[in-house]
């Protein structure tokens, strides 16, 4: 029965070793996907390369389906699996700021670490910028504290919000993703940029 570490009081050393091993897999998968290239990531927003959409949604669906089945088979206690707390205002405003950072900087935090690992200099500056941004947030926290903690709605699930069973929502997400993959594949042909694809 999972999740293993919180249920079986695994030692801190083993816990950190597992963190490192999971990180290894995470970094390997990101790099193999091509998330170590800012122009490949940015291709998502201009249609010439929609790898981001394909990888991101395939990963989200794989894990979602895995959790649904594990729960169904009694392999995991979902009551102790962390569901992100929803603070409406800060989730939206934070997400908008991150989106601007994505299109300006060309990375997100995870992909910047993976890209820096293979020598991408733009990614190293992005990491430096991220640290500055976090420090800026920390130093000016009193200004944002109210917004950060406003509209706390708890660990809400999308399925409960919509009044749908988890399995049905899962099916809807899969159908929607396949639809987006289909549209995305067409976009890749229409907005093809041989010059960029050759370089990245």
């Amino acid at each position: 029965m999972g999740p293993i570490i919180p249920l079986f009081e695994i030692s801190e050393e083993i816990n950190l070793l597992i963190a490192f091993l999971i990180g290894l897999g995470f970094g390997f998968a990101l790099e193999q996907a091509g998330f170590s290239s800012s122009r490949k990531l940015a291709g998502m927003f201009y249609g010439y390369d929609i790898t981001v959409l394909k990888v991101f949604f395939t990963a989200a669906i794989t894990a979602m389906l895995g959790l649904l089945f594990m729960n169904y088979l009694g392999m995991i206690d979902m009551s102790i699996v962390y569901v992100n707390e929803y603070f409406m205002s800060s989730a939206i405003v934070g997400g908008v700021i991150m989106g601007a950072g994505f299109i300006i900087g060309g990375f997100c935090p995870g992909t910047s670490v993976c890209a820096a690992a293979i020598g991408k200099i733009d990614a190293m500056y992005f990491i430096g910028g991220s640290l500055i941004g976090i420090l800026l947030f920390g130093q000016t926290y009193p200004l944002w504290e109210h917004l950060h903690n406003a509209q706390q709605l708890g660990s809400l699930k999308l399925s409960d919000t919509l009044g749908l069973p988890d399995g049905l929502l899962g099916l809807i997400v899969i159908v929607a993703a396949v639809g987006m993959f289909w549209i995305g594949e067409m976009a890749e042909k229409r907005f093809k940029r041989e010059d960029i694809s050759k370089e990245i």
């Binding site: 800060s90 991150m98 950072g101 300006i104 900087g105 060309g106 990375f107 910028g129 991220s130 800026l136």
Partner: peptide
């Protein structure tokens, strides 16, 4: 890259 990183870092703390 620096400006984008700073925005992402800031936004990730807020969000």
């Amino acid at each position: 890259a620096i400006i984008g990183g700073a925005l992402f870092g800031f936004g990730s703390q807020l969000g």
